[in-house]
């Protein structure tokens, strides 16, 4: 393919990646037990955004759209984008397509943090804080323990499993001591679901996710250079250690901010970047934004399917694991030939 053709193709993919989630958002707001037409949805949204008093806003449809469906749909979009961008960034940083927030222990670390916050402080304190702290603690543990190993990938994968197991054990301890009421909330939240999304939750998480994503997207070029060997990146003028830490912190931040309110939803950050690299190549200036758009869309589609096809609330986290784990095994079987 010639240079200009490729550029045009990539531009088209980028526009689709930006537009598609927005269209999907509108479509998803129509879905549900109460059917609302697209026209009505648009009118309700416009009325809400413009701030003019309108009779529309007092209808039951408006209540469902604005207070139940919209936070849920937004959370699904943000979660998909967050997992995918952090997955793509971490894979480049660790020079390995198998790495993701789940493998690095971030998911269970943040999960434990969020749960501890829920049990200790109930809903009076934002769970994002402890989720981020424990997510970061988990990834630091993994990196410190696996440092200096000869085969860094195997070491990281093994320590990731061990650190995740540690946080799972801590979670079980929490479940054991939690009150029956807290336990029920904890159980459903941990399986990973957007069904409990509320505006107050989003008010904390959304800004954290958006800020983290903007910074990660702006670091796309740096992440390219950091995917070279450390010596090369250093000789090209990068402050390798500091920049790595910054990127790991940002990836942990966006992931924990989702986990804190939606629970553990794994493997999205593995599948999406892989598909995107197949589409647009390896350049993270393109891979990261396209992953954000595609990840957001896929996550929302998955949640839409669950919401409409099943008569009960099935946790989306289970669905992503059922799809993601076989995919992970497939990648492992291929990793022997490439990226090894």
């Amino acid at each position: 393919m010639t240079g200009s053709k490729r550029k045009n193709k990539n531009k088209a993919i980028l526009y689709i990646a930006i537009l598609f989630p927005l269209l999907l958002l509108l479509f998803s707001l129509c879905l549900g037990t109460l059917r609302v037409s697209l026209k009505e949805v648009l009118e309700i949204l416009l009325a809400r955004i413009s701030g003019w008093p309108s009779d529309l806003l007092t209808t039951p449809a408006a209540n469902i759209i604005l207070n139940i469906r919209l936070p849920r749909v937004l959370l699904a979009l943000l979660a998909g984008a967050a997992f995918s961008v952090s997955g793509a960034s971490l894979q480049s940083l660790f020079r390995n397509p198998l790495v993701n927030e789940y493998i690095l222990g971030v998911s269970f670390g943040a999960g434990f943090g969020g749960a501890a916050s829920l049990v200790l402080f109930s809903r009076n304190f934002p769970p994002q804080v402890l989720a981020f702290a424990c997510g970061l603690l988990a990834v630091v543990l993994v990196l410190v323990i696996s440092e200096g190993a000869r085969n860094t990938l195997v070491a990281v994968l093994l320590t990731g499993i061990i650190v995740s197991a540690l946080f799972q054990a801590l979670l079980s301890t929490l479940e054991f001591i939690a009150s029956p009421y807290a336990l029920q909330a904890l159980f459903f939240w941990l399986l990973g679901s957007f069904s409990q999304a509320t505006w107050p939750d989003l008010a904390w998480s959304a800004p954290l996710i958006l800020v983290g994503l903007v910074f990660l997207l702006k670091l796309g070029w740096r992440i390219n250079v950091l995917s070279l060997s450390d010596d090369e990146a250093r000789s090209l003028g990068l402050a390798v250690k500091r920049e790595r830490i910054l990127i790991i912190c940002l990836a942990t931040l966006v992931t924990s901010a989702v986990v804190a309110i939606a629970g553990i939803i794994g493997w999205v950050g593995l599948i999406v970047p892989h598909a995107v690299r197949g589409l647009v190549g390896s350049d993270n200036r393109l891979v990261l934004p396209v992953s954000a758009g595609l990840g957001a869309s896929l996550m929302l589609l998955a949640d839409d399917l669950i919401r409409t096809l099943l008569p009960f609330e099935f946790p989306v986290g289970i669905l992503t694991s059922l799809v993601g784990i076989p995919f992970f095994l497939y990648l492992i079987s291929r990793a022997r030939t490439s990226w090894s």
Partner: peptide
């Protein structure tokens, strides 16, 4: 500048983008 014997090929960049990485020392982190 330093030319190693082999570059790591974790990601399969286009040659142009790879050469462009030489410019990193002139760029701000963001």
């Amino acid at each position: 500048s330093y030319v190693p014997q082999e570059h790591s090929t974790a990601l399969n960049f286009r040659v142009f983008d790879f050469i462009l990485m030489g410019r990193s020392g002139y760029l701000n982190i963001f």
